[in-house]
Structure formats: C-alpha cells, structure tokens
C-alpha cells in the first residue's frame, strides 16, 4: 500500500504559528510515535491529519484535494481519530458500535460485524451495559473496536494510555499490535514512547512548530524515515 503523504502542512493561530510547513508520511503496517511538550500541538496535528480540523495549508500529493477543506474531506475517508477520552454515546455498548457501520450494510450484517468487534476487543460480556459506565480501559477498547469496524487504513490515537492501569495498557498494546499486523498504519501521540516500541516504529518529536526525528540514545536504527 502506498503511504499517506502530507506536505506543506501549516497552521497559524492568532497567537502563534503552531505548525510550520510540516511533511509527514504514514505507512500501512507501521507505527509512528509523536511526542512533544504539552501545548506543542500534538493533538492539533493529529486532528488535521484526521481531517477534523482544516489546516491553513495542506497538500496531499497522491490524493489531490486542492483546498484545505477538500483535503480534510479526503483525509476523513482514510483516517480515524481516537480522542484521549473517547466519547461514549448514550445507550448500550452495542449501539456505540453499530453507528460505526453504514446503514447500507443492512441490520443483520451490521449486527454480525458488531459481534465480531465485541469479541475482538474483549467486550462481549459488556455488550448490553451502558457505555457511560465503562472504565477508562474499556472505553479505549470500545473506541478501538469502533475504529476497527470503520476499517480506515490509518488510525490516530491521542494519548491512549493516559489514566490507564498496567493491565489495560497491555491489552491496548496487544490490540494495536493486531491492527499493525493487519496492515493498518498507526500514529500515536504519547508521553510514554517506550510503551509503544512496535517493530519498525518511527518516533517524531514536535517542538516549536516543527517535526524532527527523535532517536533514543544508541538506538538510531529503530527510527526509520517516516519524516521526510
């Protein structure tokens, strides 16, 4: 699968130039870690890549989409974004998954796919529970299951392990590993890059509006060129 290439990604806020002419490549089956201080613009960058916030300028050499809004629309077709605290819709866990599937699929097919997703994310025993009552780890797994149903080639996660206990973090990591093996491209904003050392992981650091490759001391070989 050809990578998702973003060029000239630029965003100015009234008070500062948050993202300055960034280039970014996401590859299927590979993970890109994104670190940076609080307020550096990690979430904003992820939201732009997910097509939820339009940039001031953004070129997608392989996809077209000449205007920032057009680019955002194309990106929404390829990318699913998972909030740091995923939003749970009112009602049972199962209904929260149903809405990730198009109506055109038909009810029976949707129900079957939802059952598969529940099993994949180890949520089957909670399917009738109110989604609002789930724990942080269960919410993260539910949101991953929703993304899995949506089936976007690229998944962006915003601080997925903040406020999770060790067991939940390990479960989440295992699910992400499965997604990588299935060929999904991941991008994870995190303060804890060591937790997500998947094979072939690139690590980018965002500071002062620019991205640079962050190579942990003595491990230069682990960071492959995801940053052009």
């Amino acid at each position: 699968m050809s990578p998702l290439r973003l060029r000239q990604l630029d965003l100015s806020l009234p008070e500062r130039h948050l993202l300055q002419d960034l280039s970014l490549d996401l590859h299927g089956g590979l993970c890109t870690l994104l670190t940076g201080a609080n307020g550096a613009g990690k979430s904003t960058l992820l939201r732009i890549v997910a097509g939820l916030t339009p940039a001031n300028r953004l070129a997608l050499p392989d996809l077209g989409g000449s205007t920032p809004r057009g680019a955002a629309r194309r990106l929404r077709g390829l990318v699913t974004y998972i909030h740091q605290h995923p939003f749970m819709f009112r009602g049972p866990v199962r209904d929260n998954l149903l809405l990730a599937l198009p109506w055109s699929l038909g009810y029976r097919a949707r129900a079957r796919r939802v059952d598969e997703a529940l099993e994949w994310a180890e949520l089957t025993h909670l399917r009738r529970n109110d989604a609002g009552g789930l724990s942080g780890g269960e919410r993260q797994r539910l949101s991953l299951a929703r993304a899995w149903l949506r089936g976007s080639p690229y998944l962006l996660l915003d601080e997925p392990t903040s406020n999770l206990d060790t067991a939940s973090r390990e479960r989440l990591r295992a699910l992400l590993q499965v997604l990588l093996e299935k060929g999904h491209g991941l991008m994870i904003a995190t303060h804890d890059p060591t937790h997500f050392r998947f094979a072939g992981c690139a690590h980018l650091h965002l500071a002062d509006g620019r991205l640079r490759l962050a190579a942990p001391a003595g491990k230069d070989d682990e960071t492959q060129g995801a940053c052009a």
Partner: peptide
C-alpha cells in the same frame, strides 16, 4: 464537541451525523 467529531471520524456524512446527535 467530541460527539460530532466521533461520528465524522467514523465515516458518517453530515446528515447521518446530525441524526446521531439528535438521537443523543
């Protein structure tokens, strides 16, 4: 605001997103 973003990032068009939020 996460509700609207979640529906959009899960592939809902503007109409379906609106219906999901009205249900919400």
């Amino acid at each position: 605001p996460r509700a609207w973003e979640t529906t959009r990032t899960l592939g809902a068009g503007a109409l379906r997103a609106t219906l999901i939020l009205l249900r919400e």
